[in-house]
Amino acid sequence: MSSQDTTVEEHGKRHKHEGPQKHIVAFIFSILLTVIAFSMVAAGEINGTFIYIMLVFMAILQVIIQMSFWMHMKDRGHIFPIVGILMGVFVVFTIVIMAEYWAWW
């Protein structure tokens, strides 16, 4: 392959190389989410419940961006890591809920 070729060969299959454009957009979006979160907390005049909800929502968006663009989980062949991550999230949430339930009683 020449350096001018825009395809990547993996396991005998060829697919188009994305290039840096999507990574730059994802990086800017991640920085923007971080600045918005910091600004909301620093303002101090916004309702606390709204801030918590927005911070969790922006954290979920941040995780999706990180997993999709930086860890390439959006590509084919990543089903086992995705299932493993989802199972880990399920186990952690179960542990947290059970700990809350145990502490409550």
Rank of each mutant, 00 (worst) to 15 (best):
I95D: 07
I28M: 10
Q66Y: 14
H11S: 11
I64S: 11
G77C: 03
V25S: 06
L86S: 14
T6D: 10
G77K: 05
T6G: 00
W104M: 06
I85R: 13
F69E: 07
V56H: 12
H78C: 07
P20G: 08
L61H: 02
W70K: 07
S2Y: 02
F38H: 02
H15Q: 13
I82R: 13
V63E: 11
M73N: 04
T94K: 10
R76C: 05
S30I: 01
I51G: 00
Q66V: 15
M54K: 00
H72L: 02
T34Y: 08
W105C: 12
K74I: 08
L55M: 03
W102C: 04
K22H: 08
M73Y: 09
M71L: 14
H11I: 07
V41D: 04
R76Y: 10
G88F: 06
M98W: 03
H23V: 03
L55T: 10
M40F: 07
L61E: 05
I24V: 13
V25G: 00
A42Y: 09
D75Y: 12
K13H: 11
D5A: 04
V83F: 06
V25E: 02
V25K: 05
M54D: 02
Q66L: 15
H78K: 08
M71Q: 14
V8L: 15
I31R: 04
F80W: 06
I60G: 04
F80A: 15
V92C: 07
T49S: 04
T94M: 13
H23I: 06
L61R: 07
S30R: 09
H72M: 04
A42M: 07
A26L: 01
Y52A: 12
V35Y: 09
Q62A: 14
I60R: 02
E9P: 00
Q66D: 13
A99E: 02
V63G: 11
M54C: 06
I97Y: 00
E18N: 07
I36M: 03
F27M: 01
M98Q: 15
T6I: 14
M87V: 07
Y52F: 08
E10G: 01
S30G: 13
I51Y: 03
S39K: 09
V25A: 07
V56A: 13
D5R: 08
Y52H: 12
S30C: 05
I53R: 04
S2K: 10
I36Q: 08
Q4A: 12
A26P: 04
E9L: 06
V83N: 02
G48I: 04
G88I: 01
L32A: 15
T94L: 14
I65D: 14
A26Q: 05
P81K: 11
W104A: 11
I36W: 08
W102P: 00
I53D: 04
L33V: 03
Q62F: 14
V63R: 06
V83I: 15
I31M: 09
G48W: 01
Q21Y: 06
V92W: 10
M40V: 11
P20M: 05
I82M: 13
D75T: 10
P20S: 00
I36V: 11
D75E: 15
W105E: 10
T94F: 14
S2V: 01
F57D: 04
V25I: 15
V35E: 01
V25D: 01
W102S: 11
V96Q: 00
P20Y: 03
V25M: 04
L61K: 01
I65G: 07
M71F: 14
K74P: 06
Q21T: 04
I79W: 03
Q62M: 14
S68V: 00
I53V: 15
F93M: 14
V83D: 05
A42R: 11
T34F: 12
G88N: 03
